[in-house]
Amino acid sequence: MIPAAFAYHRASSVDEAVRLLQELGDDARVLAGGHSLLPAMKLRLARPGAVVDIGRIEGLRGIRRQVDHVEVGALTRHADLAAARLPAGLEALAECADRIADPQVRRRGTIGGSLCHADPSADWPAAVLALEGQLVLVGPGGERVVPAAEWFVAPFMTALQPGEILTAIRFPVPQARSGSAYLKLARKASDFAIVGAAARVTVDGSGRCTGAAVGVTGVGDVPYRATAVEDLLVGRVLDDQVIAEAAARAVEGVDPVSDVHAGAEYRAQVAQVYVRRAVQEALGRALSQPA
């Protein structure tokens, strides 16, 4: 399978990429690692007349610890994140990265590319939602920041505006005694998530939950924050019964999708189970932190 012909532009800076996107207009697509765009182009689901390759722009790849957040460059490979040493509470990032596709794909695919492609069954959305990532966009008008909860607009559609490029994702460093986890149901090796659940939990000295965030992918037509679950966790001492009661609301307000891999009812059931397990895992990690 061969992509339709396109004009190739290699940007050497973010400014140049933004300028190229302005010049080329709607017909241009941004190429990062190419592991979402190229398969789509080979199947001719995407036929851009021009491709702007940002893959070599200096400074867009890597993980930088800042005072109150961790900044992940948009070109950071899944494999980089799977191997990264991250602050306590951000475990779900590495865990999620390590469950994406297979080793070869993890070496080429980028977190930024995946988030911009916005496949509703991709792994990253769950973790980025639960860890309250902030997406940093640069466009003709300068920089703006979009919270993960506002990023996923529709299947394969995000809050990215024409001419903008995602340059980084900032993850707030969670408070002391926080833990996070990502769990995924996939039918076989290399697959997308039928259900993916990420949870971040913070507890105080007495073990009471002071903060919780849950992200779910693969279930609805867009990845979402399971706020009904979060509301039942915060303020309570989390035992198995409380967690199960909260996780039972994992698909509240969501219409689970049906496809060849799983029916809606099955997805709803698995979402509850995986959210419960992800919260339990995250809680265990939070409790293992010094008070």
Binding site: Y8, R10, L31, G34, H35, L38, P39, K42, D53, G55, Q104, V105, R107, R108
Partner: peptide, 10 residues
Amino acid sequence: VKSCTVLAVQ
């Protein structure tokens, strides 16, 4: 890497 998903120009 999977060379079916890498452009020669990359």
